[in-house]
Structure formats: structure tokens, C-alpha cells
Design a protein around this nucleic acid. Sequence first.
DNA 1: CTGAAAGCGCTTACAG
DNA 2: CTGAAAGCGCTTACAG
Lengths: 351, 351
Amino acid sequence: MSSSLNHPPTIADVAYKAGVSIATVSRVLTGSCPVLPETAESVRAAIAELKYVPRAAARVLASHRTNTIGLLMPDIGGAFFTPMLRGVEAGAREEGFDLLIHTTQSKPFDNLQRKPLGEHNTDGLLVLRDSIDEEEIRRLYAAGFPLVLIYDSPPENVGIPFVEIENKSSTQKLVEHLIDIHARKRIVFLGGPTGADPREEGYREALQGRDIPIDSSLMIKGEIDENPAARAIHHWLMGKTEFDAVFTGDDQVASGVLHALQEAGKRVPEDVSVVGFNDAPFSQYLIPPLTTIHVPDEQVGLEAVRQLTLLIRNGHADDKVLLPAELVIRQSCGCQPEHPHTFPPQLQSRS
Amino acid sequence: MSSSLNHPPTIADVAYKAGVSIATVSRVLTGSCPVLPETAESVRAAIAELKYVPRAAARVLASHRTNTIGLLMPDIGGAFFTPMLRGVEAGAREEGFDLLIHTTQSKPFDNLQRKPLGEHNTDGLLVLRDSIDEEEIRRLYAAGFPLVLIYDSPPENVGIPFVEIENKSSTQKLVEHLIDIHARKRIVFLGGPTGADPREEGYREALQGRDIPIDSSLMIKGEIDENPAARAIHHWLMGKTEFDAVFTGDDQVASGVLHALQEAGKRVPEDVSVVGFNDAPFSQYLIPPLTTIHVPDEQVGLEAVRQLTLLIRNGHADDKVLLPAELVIRQSCGCQPEHPHTFPPQLQSRS
DNA sequence: CTGAAAGCGCTTACAG
DNA sequence: CTGAAAGCGCTTACAG
């Protein structure tokens, strides 16, 4: 049998078996041109019989499309990571793209080295905040390479689509909750990581809308860590700075604040309300359980892929996509539990 | 300037600029053959000047190596996932391979469809437990395709290397801890997910080594879920089956058991010791904090990549790699806390 | 050590 | 609707 091969079948084997040219096989594969139904059928039969799978590299080389998107991250980790990756993976499959992933890991993105991800092996890139520096982003953008930013907005004058959550309105709602429901008036603002400006806006508008004066001595902006936050709290308590609530840009920071307050003999939430951001897995176990904001990470990943494929296929996408985030009211703000605390926690099992 | 191009530079552009043939450029790129130092230098200069990056697809097609490994998973999630992926990613980069990831997501692996991951786009595959069925594994193995299994052993008579943890010895140690330190004698064995046989062995040897008779009415093997576990506990309590400890194959199940016992008025650990497996993130927050076994997921991922690249490059790897898992003694077994419980928890921050 | 040339396995105008 | 042929951008024997 001439078609019994000891090497993986190629398009030529299929063509031979189906009695057509390789061009015709290619057409039924890509669906690019009409093919007579009966011809197509015999080609499909040959493909099935030979268990033919087109070599990806050959298609890429000939078609100038890699059919692959890349995901560039600063590292693998963080509570948001798993759901976001799930969204990205689902989106990529949905859109028929392969997914190549790489971390940049604090090494400066070296142009001279062979780059792990770029024009040479992907059709477009999903770029997480802090993966690569502004210069590299500008370079890729200038080269016309499809890019979508995640949890970050692009540098000035750079029209790269990005996917973020509604930082401003969710912060505003949460701060308004503290004011309206718990009668808080001296609310500390402990910024959060980069890109937190919209949160500051939300904070300001919440206060302004309630005629509460903004006291900038209560605000620490920009990147903040768990320990500095705790130190700041201590410092204020020593200095008799008065406050009755703390808004925090990250649950991790909130847990540090909780700790510092409790160590100083303050009761949460009776004396001070504390609220976080991101709804980390551990937040429900803090004492008291943390009121925070839940971020739709999976949606973010999915939407980022959608925008990127739009960009790849049509050359343009939405300038920005803002996904709504949801208030998660627990007890650290002062609310009472709706249901008695129950075990076991409903978490995802390992297996 | 003839070398100022409006398209991405190719190897021909580099060759022209350096005044050599493309073969020579290729040689300095791959390092396959010796090249005169000065020739190599001028080639490197041309590469740098043109910002040349070799097209991945062309290399793959010409060299018959994709330089890519694939990771096939049933889904994205589980506590082990993030550290394991970190290990896989680090390993892939270390070994100079790209990483393509895909989930199979319960859809039967359809041979007629274009497969997402396989011989056509990777040099080898990392296969997580429950990603693909035995038949597909056998097929790939028979085709001589490099494969490494993670958290799973291969079907019978199939010599695929696999990376697992020391289930048997860690189970044995944990059960011995219950016996030796806490004087437990009636220890329930709540198997765990597939592949738990070595754990059963560990359990049996622990009892046998202490001359405690094995009571099979205390053992539930195989896949077990949180709720069935709780029901079994209730059932036993109602039926007056006596037991003073519960070994559980997963922390999630352990939390269900904890709940069931406490609901029935039993005190843990005073009346019954409960221990888990996997050291899930929430386990330290359970009341009492759960004694369990920590699994080196990152190491597992790293080691799996190492074995796979050995297989790809040398044609063989270790038959199996068993990584040690570590006892995490907390309070649900009956031990006292070494340090007072402190906040904040040291968890990974979102940002 | 280096170059000319074949070939990897596809896609895609170009004819017909 | 279909085929012959060029070409994608590399690597790798084969000569020299």
C-alpha cells in the first residue's frame, strides 16, 4: 500500500489518497475557497483515514499568521492569577488561538537576547501590568503589533486597548457605604498599587457628595505594602490622628491594618471600620471577615482575549473595557453577618 | 540604504549586511558548527543592528524541532495549580523551551478535530492527571512521542516517566504521628482522589508497624467528596461506630469532616483527631487549624519539565520521580500551637 | 571554516 | 472549482 507511511502524513499524502492536488486539500482545510462537496468529502475521508494533522509551523510560515497569542506576565502568582488565566485560556480556545505564556520576572526585557514572545511567534500579545517597561510597549505599538493591556492603562498618546475593572465607581460605592450605613467621616485612604488613581477619584467623589471635607493627611497614595501600612496606622494612633475607617487598596494590606489596629487595642469594626479590595481567598477568614470588592478576574481574561483577537483580525478594538466589580459586604465595615458563619468553607478542591 | 527595510528582517538581510551566506548566519544562530570568531562577530553585529529575531516557524519547519513543550490539563484551578505552573514555566525557560498550554475540559479528546496539542506543534507533552484518557496516552506513547505524566502513574505496560509525591511514606508518617503522639488507635481512612493506593499502603503499614489491627469498616477508598465524607461520619456516629481519628486524602474533605463532627457535638481534637492532605491555603484558618501534608507543587512542575526535556533530547528519562512531601503539624491532630496565632496571615498579595 | 542548494510542509496568487 | 508553481524563512547535509 503506497499510502501506508512510516512518517507522519503530510498534505501530499492526503492529496494523493484523495486523488486531488495539495492546493485542494489546503482549501478544504482552510475553507478559504469553495470546493465541490464531493471533492471535499473525499478529502475529509482521506484526512480521517490517515489521521492527518497539519503541521503548525508550515501553516504559519506560508500564511504569515501564527494563530497564537502570547500572555506576558511579571510572574505567576497572586490571587487573581488562576481565574484570569482560566479566562484567557477559554477565550483563546474559543477564538481558535493557541496560547503561549511567559513571565518576564524582573529581568529587564533584553532586546538583544532572543525574545520569548513577540512578532516572531505570536499574532498579538496580552500584557499584564508590570510585565514590560513603557519603552518596550511603545516599540511594539509603533511596530503595529497587536497588544492588549490587562489591569493597566497605556502610556500617554499610545492607543493600546486595555481591560480594567471599574476602580472608581466601586471605590466610591464602598466609601459611600462606610459613610451612609456606618456614619464614618474620617476615612483613611491607603491607595494601593499603581493605577490606583481612579480609586482616589472615587474616594474623593464619595466624600464630596456627602459634604465631608477631604483631609489629605488621611491619604497615602501609590504603591503601599502591608508593613508600611501597619506602621502608618501605628504612627497615626500614637500621634492621635483621628480616624474611624480605613479604605485599603488590597486585602493583604487590609489584613495588616486589621492586625495593627487590634494590637493597638482598637476594636474593628466598633472603633474603626476596615475595608479591602480584591476579595482575596483568605479575606473571609479574617477576624472580623473583611468587607471588600470582588474583581471579575476571569471575565477580565476573557475580554482581553476578545479584544486582542478583534485587533488581530480587524485592526481595531475598543479603546478600553471596564468591567464592573462587586461589593462584598462582610463584617469588618460594621455590618452584621446575614447567615451564621458556617463550615466547611466552599473552596475549590485540589483534585 | 539597501538594508533599511520596511519588513521584519530575515536571515537573508543579516547575511547581506554581514557579507556572508545565510548558512553562516544560521551557524552562529544555532551554534551548530564552528565559525571564525571575526565572522561570527560581524554576524552578531548585523543581527543587533537589524534587531533581527529568527522566525520561529521557519526554524521549526527546517529543523523538525518545535522547541516547545505543551502542558495539558483537565482544567485551570485547584490550590496546587499556581505553584505547579510556576515550576513548569521556570523549567521551560531554563531549558530553552516555549510553553504552550491547553485544557481538555471534559470534552472527549477528539482525534478527528484538529488537536490543540500534539506532535504537530510540540516536542513533548506534560500531561496532568485526568487530562486525557488512557487510550490517547497509549497512542501517543506508541507513536514514540515524548510524554511525562504529572500526579499520575501510566497505564500498565506503558513506560512513560511520571512525577509524583511520596504518597505512601508521608501518609505513613502522618498516621504514625496520630498513633505515637496522640495515642489514636481507631483511625478512619478516607482515601482520596485517584492514585491514592500508595496512601492506603502507608496507612496499613503504619497500623501494622504498631500492631493495631486493620478494620476495613473504617476505610472508604477511592474518590471521595466533601459531602459524602460528612455523611459517612454522621452515619458512623449514629451507628455508634467508634473512632478517635480521621485521615483524609484532601483538606477540602477534612474541612467537611471537621464540620460534621462539630455539628454532632464532637470536639476536635479532644474527642477525634482530624488530618488532611495537600495543605490548602484555607487549612490554616480552619478551627482548629488543620494538620496536613504539604505538597511541593512547584518542584513537581520543575521536575516534570526536566524529565520531559531529558526525554526529548536523550530519548530517555527516569521512570519515576517521587518528591518528598512534608508534614505540617497544626492543631487538629491534638498538638498545641508552637506560636500564638498571629495576624496578618503571610499570604501572597494580589499585586 | 564556508557557500550553494535542497528541502521542511504548508498557503496563495495566478491561470485555466 | 481546480492545479501547477512560487514562496514563506529557516536548517542541514553536501561539497569544497
